[in-house]
Structure formats: C-alpha cells, structure tokens
Design a binder for these strands. Structure first.
Lengths: 204, 204, 204, 204
DNA sequence: GATGAATGAGTCTTCATTCAT
DNA sequence: CATGAATGAAGACTCATTCAT
C-alpha cells in the first residue's frame, strides 16, 4: 500500500470510529486495531489525534465546496423556475450529506460524541419534542387545519430542526443580544404555517 | 450552605463549564475551582463525573416535562384559532430553551462538546451553509420570488436547521432504510416554499 | 450510653468488620454504619484508625496474659501428671482463642486481611496441602502404618500448621541463617511420627 | 529486555515489595521505582495491581503443583519405608517453600500484609506463645518427662503452628459447627506427646 | 459530647506520543 | 517506512481526618 492509500485508509477507519463513538471515546488503539497497522504508523501520516480529526473535517468541507461549485455550474438559471431551483438546491444538499453517513454523523453531532449513555438521554429528549410536534400535527389534521398530504415524520423533524437551530442561534450563539420572542415566533409561524395548513378560501 | 443549596451550586457551576467547554474538556478540577469547594465535596453529592452530567440532563428533561404540561393546561382549545395555538406552542418552546442558555447549549450540542478548535471548524461549515441559503434568499428577493418581509437571518437558520435534522434523521438515525430523495425533497419544498415565496395570483 | 460503653461498642463493631474484611478493606464509613454513630464520634474515642486497631490487638494480648496467669495459678504441679499438664495447657489455649472468633481471625490471619478474591486463592493452596497430607495419612492407614484412631481432619491441619509455621520461622523470620534441611526434617519426623504411626513391636 | 523477561522482572520486584510491605502498603510507585520502569509499563503487562498480585499467587501454585507431581514421580513406594516416605515428603515441602522466601512470606502471611507496626504487635503475641511453649518444654526436660534431644526452638514452633492452624480451622473456618474441645485436645495431646515425651518402660 | 459536611493528600489508571530497532 | 514497547503527564476517585455547629 503506498503512502497516499495508507493515509486514506487510516482516515477511513478513524472516520468510522469517530462517527460511532465520538472523538474522545475513540482511542488511537481503536484506530490502529481497525486499520490493522502499528501504533507508530499513525504518527507517520498525522501529527497527532487532533490532526487526524481535523483532516477529516477539512476534507469534508473541501468536498462540500467542490460539490456546491459543481452544482451551481450545472444550473442554468434562465431555464428553471425559482421553485425548481430550490428543489435542486435542497436535493443536492441532502445528496451530499447522504453520501457519507459517518461524516454526516460527526458534523451534525446529534446524539453522538459523548458516551452512548448520554446520547440515549439526549435522544430521549429529542424524541419527546418530535412526538409532541407530531401529535400537534395529527390534531391539526383531525380538526381539518393541517394538510392531509403532509408526511408527519418528515414535517416534525423539519420543525424540530428549525426550532433547535433557531434556539441555538439566538440563545447560545448570539448570547447577550436582546431577543424579541414574539417577533421571532411570528416570523416562524408565518414561514411554517402556509406550507402546513390547509388553504382556506377566505379570511384565513 | 445546606445540602440542597450546595448540590444546586455544584450543578450550576458544572453546567456552566460543560456548556462552555464540553463534557471531556471540563475537569473535576475546573468544577471545584469554579465552585470554590474541595475535591471530595463533589463526590459527596454525586457518584462521579458522569452522574453529575446525567443529573444535569435529567433535571432539564424534568423541567421540560413540567413546562409542557403547564402550558397545555393553560390553553383553552375552544377559544383560540389553530394559528394562535401554533404560535403559543412555538413561543413557549423557545421561551423554555431561552431560560437556560447553558443547558440549551449542552442539549442542542451545536458546536459544543469537543475542543474549541473543532467547534470553530464545524461552525465554519455551518456558517457556509447559512450564507448559501441567505444568498439564495436574497437572490429570490431580487428576482421577486421571495417575500420581502422575510427576516433572512431567521429564515436561513430555520431552513438550515430543518435540513440538518432531516439529514441526520434519514441518513444517520434511520440508516439502512431506503430513502427516496426526490420524494423527500418535494415534501420539504412544499412545506417551506409557501411561507417564503411571494404568492402569485395564478399558475405559481 | 456512657463513654466506657460507647468505646467498647465501637471496638466491638470494628472488630467484627476487621475480622471479616481485613484492616484495609474496612473503612471508617463501615464502622460508623455498623455502630450507628457519627463519623466524628470515632475520633472522640480513638486517635485514628490505627489506634482503633492497635487497641483491639492490645486488649487481646492483655486478655491473653491474664488468661495464662490465671491458668497457671490454678495448676497444682505436684498433683497432676506431665501429660495432664500438657492437656490442660493446650485446652486452655484453644479455649481462649475460641472465646473470640473475630480476634482469632484477625490475629491468626489465615486467609483474611486482603481481598476476598486473594483469600480464596490462598485458601485454595492451603486446601491442596491439607488434602495431600490427608491422602498420605489415608494411605498410611491402608498400609497399616498409621493408627486407625487418628482424626484425619485434625491431624492434617496439625501437620500443615506445623509445617507452615516452621517454614515461616526458618525461611522468612530467620532469613540469612544457614538451615540444615535434613536435620530439621529429621526432627519434625521424629516428633510427628510416634504420635501418628502404629507402634511396631520390633525393628520399626 | 524482551516481553517475557520484562514481565518476569516486574513480577520479581513486585513480589519482593509485597513480601516486605504487604499488598496495600506496596504502591505502584514503589514497584516502578524498584523495577526502574515507567508507570505505564506495569499496565502493559498487567491489567492492574490486583492482576499483578494474583499472577504472583497463581505462579506460586502452579510451581507447587509441578513440584509435587515431580516429587511423587521420583518416589518408588516399594523401595522405601513409610518413615522414609514421610521424611521425603516433608523435606520436599520445606525445600519448595525455602526456594522462594518472598512468596513464602506472602502466602503464609504471618506477620506480613499490614503495617510494620501491626506486624510487630502480632509477632509479640506469637513470641509470647512460643516462649510459653518453650519454657514448658524446658520444664519437661528438667523433670525428665521430655526427651533431651528435642530442639526446643523447632518443637515450640511446631506446636504453636499446629495450635494456631487448628484454632483457625475449628473456630474461624468451621464457624458454627459444634466443637468438642476435650476430644480435640485429647487428639492433639495423643499426637504430640509420643514424639516429645521420654518413653517410659511401664505405667506411662 | 455528638454530628456529618468538608477537606485534600494520596492512589490508581489511562492513553496520546515517542523512539530505538 | 513500519513497528510496538516504553513513557509519563494528566485525571478521576478514595477515604482518613478535621472542625464548626
């Protein structure tokens, strides 16, 4: 196996383990066992464990950049509708993330990266929110407010993801900035409801 | 300080540090320095570091359960419209998450839990996606397809969050299950577009 | 409970635990749980854990001295045979050791004082030696060399105890001193055999 | 130094220290200082401190088994007298225990395994019993009851060892079982006296 | 005297990294 | 280049002892 190939091999094995057990629970010992190489060999190709992990992430981002650039080149803006454009963009984003489950797991870190035990606990919480949203949607369907062709599993994950990210963005990332909860909620509702709700002829 | 108060004090200090540096980068030494107590005192109130962390999470979930139960009691379903109901629900969810920034940071784990260095790298990726979405939205506004009253910062976080969660849900969590990317993308587009796009009189 | 009684109570509880789990595996926590007293109370009566243990041992030795002195006073050397004297002495020694099983266990430390696991391992070895001696005795009985009225269990423990102590005495305690193994073995054989072997009329 | 040799080297150093200071008072730090190796090296060869100690014991037992098997093979039962057989057996047992003073010290645990301080205390007690027995023997010699060719040091250790083991066996190990002290003492006396006492022509 | 929360020195153990072969 | 034994800094946890109430 030549240098290039060996480096790639190590990366692949490490990626799998990082995705499964997180950065801290993955030991060099695990990686060399998985890759069937000697302990010292890792350090021939990577400065240290950090470098190995960072290389993984950077490869991911480089791939992402390339994928986006490629996608943009393929689009002929004059020939497709805005809706088709959006469809195309979203599909390509999903396709990219789908192409490497391990990296997706690492980068999106939802329920990974800590102990298995912690993850389970966190997933329990997320499952609760998802259920709550799902039951609200079902309620809406029964009452005739929500469109019957909605995929509830998808819609509740979509809404939960949106709420989680917005919470993180406004409450953690932009800490200290004053937040007008009513204004934000109104915006969220305005964006989500039209796509979820049954269209009423008048005075909706 | 009585037992109850001391335990709460330790939890508070630990929470802050876990939120800031993640589980693994937070040492017992850090916690006792922050809490100004002796090493052994932590172990008087918690079995071990895990227990401390799990207690934090479990408290959070218990609080969440209580908050949801309380909110549901307050709602008089007959008196409010479906839209008002949604508004109320979303606002309360956000309010709850806003009430404890540290726990929000721990539980939503977006860019937390690993090294500062790794987090920055991951945030860079997320920022790129957010920018991409934002520029698409701006493009849409310029072309007259997207509503001009959309808050771009909010909308792009909403969409990114939705896409991240859906990717995680379908590609990581439901690994192995066959996924029809076109169908999923269509659903996503159908939900998001009505709230984002300018309503066209005909043939939109 | 007055001071005297409380001190005795603590000693009794500690003795039981030391006998069962050894010095190191017995924690102050165990003692105060057993004695149903507060942590600090132990230190009102004893300087430290060592002191507690040493007090136990010293009480034992003081009792032993008293018992021996008492026994000697009771004997009227002129009235009993040498054999009766030996009988009396041995019986009293055994009686004393029997009177306090916990202290006996602590002081004789055979298979106690370390982990349960270690003890089991050591007992396994001792059991093997005992079995070996017992089977030799049975062999001797079959061949008509050993007295049939011998209690094999007792005799093998007696012989094993003798050999263990002599080994310890000559090989550990008197380390460095030259040992003539043949001479010692001859002595041991000369002492043990007459009591074990069948008396032959001639040419034994 | 190859793996085999290094493991043996660690075992040897640990054995020496365990024999000298007991299991608990021997720290990993002591072992690595003695063996002139790094802390981590111990854990390359042994799971933990327990494993190190248990390995020592198990090696000892394995050696013992081998030694016994070998000895039995060497004996030609038809060619030696019963007395010679006993002599041979006892001598080999002693020889084996003599061959490894440290392990002998660990396994026989007489005055080892606790603090030096405790050991001294316990040895003081044992010395008292030994002296008592010795003085009884001297008394017997003066009165013409005990054989003059008896080695008093050896005989008193033999008797003490026998009594200690029997006490431990009947009072600690077989706790709960009813013990007939007179019967036991009679047996002991019957076994010991013939080898110690001067043979009387008549009316013994 | 009794209490038990607080203390912190002392230990074991882990694991990323090095380096001689 | 590959190897894997050796390293030792770092970190979690224990538990005898103290002391304010």
């Amino acid at each position: 196996m030549n240098a290039e190939a060996r480096k790639a091999h190590i990366l692949k094995c490490a990626k799998k383990l990082f995705a499964e057990h997180g950065y801290y629970k993955t030991q060099i010992s695990d990686i060399i066992r998985e890759a069937k190489i000697a302990r010292g060999t890792v350090y021939q190709y990577f400065e240290n464990k950090d470098d190995l992990f960072v290389t993984l992430l950077e490869n991911f981002y480089a791939d992402w950049e390339k994928a986006v650039a490629l996608n943009l080149k393929e689009i002929d803006l004059d020939k497709i509708s805005a809706k088709q454009y959006i469809f195309y963009r979203i599909k390509n984003t999903l396709k990219f993330l789908q192409s490497d489950r391990d990296l997706c797991s690492i980068v999106l870190r939802m329920g990974v990266g800590l102990h298995k035990d912690f993850d389970l606990l966190i997933q329990r919480f997320e499952a609760k929110i998802l259920n709550l949203i799902a039951s609200d949607l079902e309620l809406g369907i029964r009452y005739g407010n929500v469109r019957t062709d909605i995929n509830i599993e998808l819609a509740s994950n979509l809404i939960a993801g949106a709420l989680f990210r917005l919470s993180y963005h406004y409450f953690v990332y932009k800490k200290g900035v004053h937040i007008d909860l009513d204004a934000i909620t109104t915006q969220i509702v305005n964006i989500i409801i039209p796509g979820i709700f049954v269209e009423r002829k008048k005075k909706s």
